[in-house]
Nucleic acid binder design. Structure first.
Lengths: 405, 405
DNA sequence: CGATTTTGTTCGTAATAGAAACAAATGCCG
DNA sequence: CGGCATTTGTTTCTATTACGAACAAAATCG
């Protein structure tokens, strides 16, 4: 039950039914391809005549294409339809603390080419580099298709509407606008989004057969800890663009210092830095700790490997992270009761070790057995969820439901 | 940007635009009444001819009515339109730990008659009493109009779809179905909902000129602590009906025992019981504490009054509640970043004392100044927000946006 | 009383969902 | 091998309805 916002409603016109049905059709093709017109008519419970008319429109606009006919037990063989994805390209960019990845991929997030370079913290130089690399990539692969936009994923808060990066502590960016500069430099539309939300969007739009559509939470446990929240198929951005910041909810008011300035935040207990600090067993300032890590080259992956090899201190460090992660997950479940939680980040490499631990904590800290049994799964290995998210930023709006009423 | 759910979409038909526009029109009348057809045409950016046709339909169905013409500076005087609310009645029922209130009210939640009785914990007897009182109320006020349903608000988790009360600890109800029995006993449709969500719905639908439509959180701080979360104009119920349970997120793993069985929950720090426990400075089990309170008749209102009178122990108890409440509010802000938070419950009587305290904590525990300045206001005094919520349960579905695409 | 202004109604037109008839393509079976 | 059944896809017709424009109604003002 939704209330109609009487200051910002969208009235229906004569062409509204057609727009709605066209989009439903397009999405059905997307999720059932290869699919015939007759199948679509059955799915939509509508006459085949209507389908012909809508399909012709989508074919003219080159949103879909006709493939080969396919064998059927009897009767005329159906002509299969597909969404055009292979020759519609996206430049997906993932900016992280140390490295930046660029992928030229198609609408289904299949990689055409990938590059990587050390993250440039000066916004001006960053913009120039992105523009140059984008132009080079597109020139090299001009035959693969037309590029429809750039998707940029950053580790920080973003104002979707204006495109400004409000605060990305890992880069030291505050109120920086790179979107418009990249857009005018490349002549391409640029979409920008913060990392956990982009990962959540990737799951909504590229998940197996759209099973993840409804309500779920994507939790990143990496340098930072954040959530992409999806409610009723829509992402929760928050009024001032800080929704999903479960990372800075305190677990323990007298806990370890956090980068945000407080004590005992979930992030201060479960981030990669926290696990490493626990392993090294040193009380250093975040800056000193980073320096130590740069010098030794030690990563969470190493600690997980050592835990697997039986190193008692590594086991203790990882297990403690798992326990605190359980508190964070229980928090999310109590607050939102999602259908499932997807966890991403380096810590998922230790899944078989951490899962029983956080599951136990979740059981203790939730109110019902249903809630305690909320499915919690690791992000699938493979292509970076952030690059997939960046792709979706450009591709998904073409398939999204129309705003109505 | 919403994804179309390809398993549960709603196709548009030829009459879809009319349905949409009719509902927009109805809502515009609701929020702008008294309003003329010409005004509506301007609001909707549509021809007056269309409005005439839609208004005729709504007049025939008796959803709206024509009032008197009104003076205009020049030209033909406009005929004002109103939503029919005064003769469409709802029986609103608010079940609390000790007392149950019944209100016969109109669609705008104006009271026609109110009753109150000690809460009956036996479900069978409860149902019989409700049926008898409802019948009597309706017989007495039969001239006031037709009753369109019963709205029932309970302190616990509810499955909206089946109508079952899954768990209401204050009443000791687990998996109890009173809805169908009341419905068949009275011949009226019954809507049932948990208290914080009902309060949130009341704000969405009866708030000043619909200003609260978008994203906000209603937090009840009473015997329990819970939240009604509204995102994108829709309530968050959660996958297994336990959304918004911020009350059982731990603030401090070594804190006081909570009714839920854990330690250190927000509820264990901020509920009425917690404040009273702190004031009495006794470590009693919840059962013993309830007995003491029943004997002494002491309420949170009394403690607040004593704090106002300068009682140091009362001041300390209330101030501590305010500090913990600040942590809870910061948690909500970090998680969801709503446009505002509305706080309901007995503690709001001490608003001028607690506000600066929790505001300070919120400032320390949030990430941006925008988030720190999230408006936090007390529930307006006056008619019980829960009775208003119960009314909305019946009235609002007639005005809600249609499910589409 | 006519001119002007504003409100509300009526009517013709164009767009389009829905239904039904039709055409095309294929396998089956005598 | 030629009807016949079956399934797919197209075309045609009709009823509905948003939209625009003309019209009627009701009021004020000079």
């Amino acid at each position: 039950m939704r209330k109609i916002d009487t200051r910002r409603f969208v009235r229906a016109t004569r062409s509204t039914p057609r727009e709605i049905n066209r989009l439903i059709l397009l999405n059905l093709v997307r999720e059932h391809q290869p699919v015939s017109r007759a199948d679509l008519a059955r799915h939509m419970d509508i006459g085949r005549g209507m389908i012909t008319s809508l399909v012709d429109e989508l074919l003219n606009e080159e949103a879909i294409y006709e493939g080969a006919t396919i064998d059927a037990p009897r009767g005329r063989k159906p002509q299969m339809l597909f969404v055009r994805t292979r020759d519609r390209l996206v430049v997906a960019i993932d900016v992280r603390f140390s490295r930046t990845d660029i992928m030229l991929g198609d609408f289904a997030a299949n990689a055409v080419a990938t590059e990587s370079f050390d993250t440039i913290v000066d916004p001006g130089e960053f913009v120039r580099t992105i523009i140059a690399r984008t132009k080079r990539l597109l020139a090299t692969h001009v035959a693969r298709g037309r590029c429809e936009g750039i998707g940029l994923v950053v580790p920080g808060m973003v104002d979707q509407r204006t495109g400004r990066i409000l605060n990305a502590p890992q880069l030291g960016w505050r109120n920086v606008d790179v979107r418009d500069a990249i857009a005018s430099g490349t002549g391409l539309p640029v979409q920008i989004e913060n990392a956990p939300i982009a990962c959540a969007l990737a799951h909504v739009w590229l998940g197996q057969r759209g099973r993840e559509a409804g309500d779920f939470v994507y939790m990143t446990v990496s340098d930072g800890v954040g959530c992409g929240i999806v409610v009723n198929g829509q992402v929760v951005r928050g009024h001032s663009h800080t929704g999903g910041e479960f990372g800075h909810i305190p677990l323990d008011v007298s806990g370890p210092r956090c980068l945000c300035g407080n004590r005992g935040c979930l992030e201060a207990h479960t981030s990669n830095l926290a696990t490493l600090t626990r392993y090294l067993d040193r009380e250093l300032s975040p800056e000193d700790m980073r320096a130590v890590l740069r010098d030794t080259g030690l990563t969470v992956g190493d600690v997980i490997q050592r835990a697997r090899d039986g190193d008692a201190r590594a086991i203790a460090a990882v297990d403690a992270t798992a326990r605190f992660l359980g508190l964070g997950l229980a928090m999310v479940i109590n607050a939102l009761n999602p259908t499932q939680i997807v966890v991403g980040g380096e810590i998922t490499a230790a899944w078989e070790r951490i899962e029983p631990i956080f599951r136990q904590v979740v059981r203790e800290r939730t109110l019902t057995t249903d809630a305690a049994d909320t499915p919690i799964r690791p992000e699938d290995a493979g292509i970076s969820p952030r690059l997939r998210g960046a792709t979706v930023l450009v591709a998904a709006p073409q398939f999204a439901a129309p705003r109505l009423a």
